[in-house]
Simulated scan of single mutants.
Amino acid sequence: MLLLSYSGGKIVWDHHELPPSWLLQSKFFSAIFKKAYSRVFINIHCNNSRKDYLEKKLNFFHDRALIMPNLPEQSELEAVKPINLPYNENGKVVFLQNSMIPQRCGYQILEALKISGYKALHAGSSATIDDKSVVYSLGSLSLEEISYCLDHSKFTIVTYKSNSLNQKYCEPNRLYHAMARGSAIIAGNNPTIIEILADYPNKVILADDGSNSNYIVDAIKEIEKMELKSFNYKDFWSSKFAEVLSYIAPEKLGVK
Rank of each mutant, 00 (worst) to 15 (best):
E55N: 14
Q167P: 01
I248W: 02
S142C: 14
K56R: 12
K56V: 01
D14K: 09
S99Q: 14
H15Q: 08
L253V: 10
E55C: 12
G91N: 03
I101P: 02
V135H: 12
K114P: 03
Q167C: 07
I129N: 08
S147H: 13
I220A: 00
N214V: 01
L54N: 10
G254P: 10
A120E: 09
L143Y: 05
N70R: 06
I185R: 05
R50A: 12
P20V: 11
D63L: 08
P201V: 08
G254A: 08
I196A: 12
K229R: 14
Y247F: 15
S230W: 07
I32C: 06
G254D: 10
L58R: 12
I216Q: 02
C105E: 05
I185C: 14
N212M: 03
V12K: 06
Y136N: 12
M68F: 12
K240M: 04
Y136Q: 11
D14H: 13
L96S: 02
H122D: 01
K203A: 02
I194M: 15
S7Y: 03
Y233M: 09
E78K: 12
S164R: 03
A180E: 02
G106S: 09
P20Y: 08
R104W: 03
A198K: 15
L71P: 00
H45Q: 05
A184N: 08
E89K: 15
K161V: 00
L121E: 13
E222C: 06
S183C: 15
S38D: 07
V158N: 01
F28Y: 14
K92A: 03
Q25P: 01
N214I: 01
R104Y: 04
G8D: 10
P82D: 15
A180G: 06
A127Y: 02
K240W: 07
Y148H: 13
K161M: 00
N173E: 04
I220P: 00
I196M: 15
L110H: 11
P20D: 13
E76S: 09
W22A: 05
V158E: 00
A242F: 12
L4D: 07
F61E: 11
R50G: 05
A180V: 04
I44Y: 00
I193D: 12
L23W: 07
K56Q: 11
E55T: 10
I115L: 13
E89V: 05
